[in-house]
């Protein structure tokens, strides 16, 4: 929240961009957070567009979905790859787990916006309460992602028969389980590479967000913001946290739906 700048001794002829006032009506910190987020939008957009470009350079899997087998000749169907859920080993439950993750992240974004709203009202107990919920949501999401990665890396019981060039330069045909950067049982090598890079980069952002949320939670709880006189830090961290949610909405569409 910026104070309205009534510039002393500045002629009104100077105009809004002539200095001595705040043309964008936002504090330095908030502006810089917005411009950082803009640059981050470009980073993620470049990742996702690269995913789309590599995806259209492969034929998609065209056969019936219930007999899908992984091959590096065609791009896999996401429902057939992301169909696992904890405690239901080997059961085909497509997209349910990632749906849960999406739900958790959207809900944590809602609790964050409630924390920001409470900050506008200088309501310390409410800020602390909602930040704690947001923190819990973030940690739960990260735990889910850790499980998702672990499952993706270790693979299914059956694996897939793949013919590929190994790291010694030899062409080999063998049953591949799970995924690494060189080969994976789901599709072309680029499929797992992009999965690791894009969801990994997003998860890294969530991790930083969880640290920032903890900082805000702690400082709000001990009264740092109350002594400072405003809760703008909650608002800035809120912007970052909503951005993380925004990126997930796109990752979800490109990776798990299309």
């Amino acid at each position: 929240m910026s104070t309205t700048a009534t510039a002393v001794g500045v002629s009104s002829k100077r105009g809004i961009w002539g200095g001595g006032n705040e043309p964008l009506k936002a504090s330095y910190g908030k502006l810089m957070m917005w411009f950082f987020l803009l640059s981050d939008i470009f980073t993620f957009a470049a990742f996702l567009t690269a995913y789309a470009a590599i995806r259209v350079s492969y034929p998609g899997y065209a056969g019936p979905e219930d007999v899908f087998v992984g091959s590096n000749e065609y791009w896999p169907v996401p429902e057939m790859v992301f169909d696992a859920i904890p405690f239901f080993h080997g059961v085909h439950i497509p997209l349910a787990f990632v749906g849960l993750m999406t739900f958790i992240l959207i809900m944590s974004s809602v609790t964050m916006v409630l924390a920001v709203e409470a900050g506008h009202r200088n309501d310390r107990p409410d800020v602390v309460k909602w930040l704690l919920w947001t923190l819990l949501g973030g940690i739960t999401f990260l735990s889910c992602q850790a499980w998702e990665w672990s499952h993706f890396i270790h693979g299914t019981d059956g694996g897939s028969l793949m013919t590929y060039v190994n790291n010694l330069g030899q062409i080999v045909s063998e049953t591949v389980y799970g995924a690494n950067l060189a080969v994976n049982e789901y599709g072309p090598a680029a499929f797992a590479q992009l999965f690791f890079f894009i969801t990994g980069f997003h998860g890294f952002h969530v991790t930083i967000g969880v640290f920032l949320l903890f900082l805000a939670f702690y400082q709000a709880a001990v009264g740092v913001y109350e002594r400072r006189g405003h809760y703008e830090m909650v608002e800035k961290i809120g912007l970052y946290w909503h951005f993380v949610d925004l990126v997930w909405v796109f990752v979800f569409t490109f990776f798990y739906l299309i």
Binding site: W34, G238, H242, D245, F252, T253, L257
Partner: peptide, 27 residues
């Protein structure tokens, strides 16, 4: 349809949660 719905959701997150609509027009 998926991409359209995604952009629609992005609009809600940016305008309602991040309050971009309430910022000054130049921003």
């Amino acid at each position: 349809i998926f991409i359209g719905l995604t952009i629609w959701k992005a609009k809600y997150i940016m305008m309602e949660f991040m309050h971009l609509g309430e910022e000054a027009k130049p921003l």
